[in-house]
């Protein structure tokens, strides 16, 4: 079972990146599907609460593959957490640990900071900022931009579309602005 031991360790970028890139031809060749994940959120709206909004009036059943795809991602997450857990402690760069400690993060043991992502914080200001506001920005922003990291950064750039480069640059600018300008302020509130 050496192979299992090997894949339980964190995968380096040069293994993970190419595998993610291969999703593009896999989806194209299996069924002529363009890679993109944020569209699943739109299909959920169209299927559950279209409310006569033109943006949600389309044949979502034709795009249902996307919902199966994200269901698969969820199952993949479950399987990894069940059978492929990292035997070693989570490694984060020392500089990031120092920076985040200064912001009040104390627990560096898991993939997600227990100081933020705990159900106990659901109905607190922390929960409102990190889950509700953060999630809303992800859903609203990706749809306005017409795609996310998968649809624009990976699929869009793979097909050499400059609007996707603009979108990707804006994703990064937004992320840098939040990390360096807004997050320090948000962390003083909670």
């Amino acid at each position: 079972m050496e192979f299992i031991e090997l894949i339980r360790k964190p995968w380096p970028w040069y293994v993970a990146g190419p595998l993610i890139g291969l999703t593009v031809p896999a989806l194209l060749l299996i069924g002529n599907k363009s890679f993109g994940i944020s569209s699943s959120l739109r299909h959920i709206c169209a299927a559950c609460l279209p409310a006569n909004i033109p943006f949600f009036q389309y044949n979502w059943r034709k795009e249902v593959w996307n919902l199966f795809f994200v269901a698969g991602i969820t199952i993949g997450g479950m399987l990894s957490a069940q059978f492929l857990t990292n035997p070693n402690a989570f490694q984060l760069s020392a500089a990031t640990v120092t920076d985040l400690r200064a912001l009040g993060i104390r627990d560096f043991s898991g993939l997600m900071p227990a100081d933020l992502f705990d159900p106990a914080y659901l109905f607190t200001l922390k929960g409102l900022l990190f889950f509700v506001l953060g999630g809303f920005l992800v859903g609203f922003g990706t749809r306005w931009a017409g795609g996310c990291t998968s649809g624009h950064a990976i699929m869009g750039l793979s097909t050499l579309q400059w609007p996707s480069l603009v979108a990707t640059a804006c994703f990064m600018i937004g992320g840098f602005a939040m990390t360096h300008l807004i997050l320090p302020y948000l962390m003083t509130l909670i």
């Binding site: 994940i37 944020s38 699943s40 959120l41 994200v70 269901a71 991602i73 969820t74 199952i75 993949g76 997450g77 479950m78 399987l79 990894s80 957490a81 993939l111 997600m112 900022l129 990190f130 889950f131 506001l133 953060g134 999630g135 809303f136 920005l137 992800v138 859903g139 609203f140 922003g141 990706t142 749809r143 306005w144 931009a145 017409g146 996310c148 990291t149 998968s150 624009h152 609007p163 996707s164 603009v166 979108a167 990707t168 640059a169 804006c170 994703f171 990064m172 600018i173 937004g174 992320g175 840098f176 602005a177 939040m178 990390t179 807004i182 997050l183 948000l186």
Partner: peptide
């Protein structure tokens, strides 16, 4: 793509997730 992209970027750094990882985080 500019306005929405910037907003998504802000959300990405708060939640630590783009839409794909959201599903994987829930699963794990």
């Amino acid at each position: 793509q500019i306005y929405g992209g910037l907003l998504f970027g802000l959300g990405w750094a708060i939640t630590g997730a783009c839409p794909g990882p959201l599903f994987a985080q829930i699963g794990s």
